[in-house]
Simulated assay, not measured.
Amino acid sequence: MKLKKTYKFALKTSFLITVFLTLLMSVFLYVFYALNVGQILLFAFATFSVSFVITQFRVEKFIYKRINKIYKDLTLLESVSFRKNSITTDMATLTQQIDQFAKNKKIEIETLTVREEYRKEFMGNVSHELKTPLFTVQGYLETLLDGAINDPNVSGKYLERANKGVERLIYIVKDLDMITKLEVGDLSLDVAPFDIIQLVQSVFELLEMKAAKKKITLTFDMHYKHPIMVVGDAERIQQVLTNLIVNSIKYGREKGTTEVSIEKLIKNKVIVRVTDNGEGIEKKNIPRLFERFYRVDKSGSRKEGGSGLGLAIVKHIVEAHEEKIYVESEINIGSEFSFTLEKAKTSV
């Protein structure tokens, strides 16, 4: 059995006291009285026993009082681990507990610091995104109120521009509402089997005119003869594909290509890849791509429009399906966003 540290200390201390007093007693008996071995052994045993009890009691009490104060000071910091644990007088164990406590608190403080910085950045981004269209709308309306409304050549144009600003505000607010619901798990998914090939084709048709403005070709990597049935919320996956393809068009080069491929990953999974030959993304920006309002090109991307929430929404929708999303990119070569989906049992 392993002895408590306090017992080891008491045993060693008692042994040293016993040896010292027994030798002293032996010399005393040898000089003044007849040397009696039995009496010496009895004296040694009594000395050891009394020394051990007193030392152990005093050490336990001495250490307990001071360690108890340490525990009380630590529990003021609301450490659950220290509240649950019984008080130990083993200094090694206590040191380990305090070290672990310090590490946990350090991680907690670092996490809170990161969150605070993220909160400030998020609030600044929200303010900026809403401020731009608000000021635009306000400017046009003030001009109209100042008399331009009576000029038929100006009023119609300004009202149309003000309306576009309002539409942008609605777009941002809708995206904010959706991502909030996704983050708190308040958005339910209508999961059912659907043909991913047909869904991609419908997204191509929806974005055909947008791609034509930059002469970008939307295409599959090959001709798929049979449907590929997957399981998920078709409406949400369409939103994922739309956001990814819109991004590829937005940052794609003139007369470029956006290619979609669906490949078998493992027995019950497929991976959907959206690849373009656009400007690409620097490696330092990739870890933050899916953050809300994070933009690689702060000026250029705002000119292109959008809420800055597209990729954050994509990530949340994919993760809500318990799937993974990946990104690979090289500057001046292009980018590839891919995500996994579960195959339906009836898939060909």
Rank of each mutant, 00 (worst) to 15 (best):
L3F: 05
K5T: 10
T6G: 00
F15N: 03
L16V: 13
L24K: 01
V27N: 05
F32P: 03
Y33V: 13
L35T: 11
L35M: 14
N36V: 12
N36S: 11
L42K: 05
F45T: 14
F45M: 14
A46Y: 08
T47A: 11
V50A: 15
F52R: 02
I54E: 00
F62R: 06
I63A: 07
K65A: 11
R66Y: 09
I70M: 13
Y71Q: 05
L74S: 00
L77I: 12
E78R: 15
I87G: 06
F101M: 08
V114D: 04
R115F: 05
T132Y: 04
A148H: 08
G156Q: 15
N163E: 15
R168N: 13
L169I: 10
L176C: 06
E183S: 13
G185M: 03
Q198L: 04
V200K: 03
L207E: 09
I216L: 06
F220K: 02
Y224H: 06
R236S: 07
Q239P: 00
I249K: 02
K267E: 11
N268M: 08
T275P: 09
N277Q: 15
P287M: 09
F290I: 07
K303A: 09
G310P: 14
L311R: 10
V318I: 12
H321Y: 09
K324H: 13
S329K: 01
N332W: 02
I333W: 07
L341K: 03
